[in-house]
Design a protein around this nucleic acid. Structure first.
Lengths: 217, 217
DNA sequence: ATTCTGTGACTGAATGGTCGGTCGGAAATT
DNA sequence: AATTTCCGACCGACCATTCAGTCACAGAAT
């Protein structure tokens, strides 16, 4: 049977997802192509119909992964309503939850990080990572800037810096949770966000208000 | 010549440090034992006089690394004077600076993370990581608790949560910097800390004061 | 019959780890 | 102090294994 393009890409996806599971569990080096073939329920040779090499496949998994993650964040943000504080809070929670839910996927992230150090394709990995982090920072900083414009947040915070730290702390928290099952990133994040929000409030003495001391449009 | 114990351990350290450099540059998988031997200026066989296996050596590098890092933090903290805010700020800066300075070393961290996913010894790696993160959190949370007791910080923040986030965001920030050379983790951290400090202040309207609304001795 | 897809046995390159042998120096013996 | 013995640190050629990638063939589709 001659596969249609969409069937072809469907099978590609099948392989990618099977590979993702195996890589997540065994790491890049620990994974052999035969494992992936078995997981996907196909022959080893077939993989090479769709991918150049093991590294090429790994990179494809990486791209798939970042896509999933980014669209998750996009959806979260676009769905959210309420004040900037609330949206920030909710986005944070849903990202941490996502990270905790797909715990396998987090271990995949670690493999990707490592790949950006030493694989043949480290520069391609780095480039994509850079872009992903930028995207996330952009999403968050827009949210913060919005809060400032509404007069909800102090005008003198730097949205970019704060966004970077939030993005960073999600990684950092999940990392700690990865190593210590007793560590609860969700309640940690919650507690933390409330401190942040207090620091952000334009007028700390009131819960919320529209008084505008803000500059910049 | 029969080596004394201290000569013996000196050579061990020599190998560890040579290995650290090579692993940092080429990653675990990309490193071959011959490289390490060459870097250390010894024969390959000699390495096996001191270490069971490649993984065993890698783990030894890991232990050495965490020791270095922890003692750096210890020294920083014990040296620092001033208010809790100032000490927090300074500790943060010096850790970020350290991370930036030894950029090779940061890439080593990534390798260690990956090792905790998939190496044979993943549980040993995880255990050590867990301990290291706990130590760091303990250092920071003690600092915060101190600030609360002095009445400098609001009594209703959770020192453990905040400490975890700070620790996490150092990792997270350095990670972003790793991928994007244009990203400046230091000024980001500075900006961020000032938001945090504002959120922490016991009495936000004054710069600093000793008024004690605090409970708990 | 022809074309396309799937396959898994096979191969060769790469490399972790071994082991028999070397050699500089310490200790024992003279 | 000269000589011999002994030790163990050091070495690197070699071995055994592991796997990524290939390819000749089988089977399906048309």
């Amino acid at each position: 049977m001659v596969l249609q393009n969409d069937q072809k890409s469907q099978k590609r996806d099948l392989i990618i997802q099977a590979a993702a599971r195996v890589f997540a569990q065994k790491g890049f080096a620990g994974t052999i192509m035969a494992d992936i073939a078995e997981e996907a329920g196909i022959g080893k040779g077939t993989i090479y119909e769709y991918f150049e090499s093991k590294e090429d496949l790994f990179f494809a998994v990486f791209e798939w992964f970042t896509q999933e993650l980014t669209s998750l964040a996009m959806v979260s943000v676009s769905t959210l309503g309420g004040t900037a504080s609330e949206r920030l809070m909710t986005l944070g929670e849903s990202l941490v939850k996502a990270g905790m839910g797909m715990e396998d996927m987090f271990s995949l992230s670690m493999e990707f990080w490592a790949a950006s150090v030493s694989s043949q394709m480290k520069n391609r990995f780095k480039e994509v990572f850079k872009q992903v982090y930028m995207d996330f920072r952009r999403i968050i900083s827009a949210l913060i800037r919005d809060g400032i414009e509404r007069g909800e947040f102090r005008p003198d915070v730097d949205p970019e810096s704060l966004a970077a730290v939030l993005v960073g702390s999600w990684d950092g928290l999940l990392l700690q949770a990865w190593f210590d099952p007793a560590f609860d990133p969700l309640s940690t994040a919650r507690n933390f966000m409330s401190v942040i929000i207090k620091g952000l409030r334009a007028n700390p003495s009131q819960e919320r208000q529209g008084k505008t001391e803000h500059r910049k449009g």
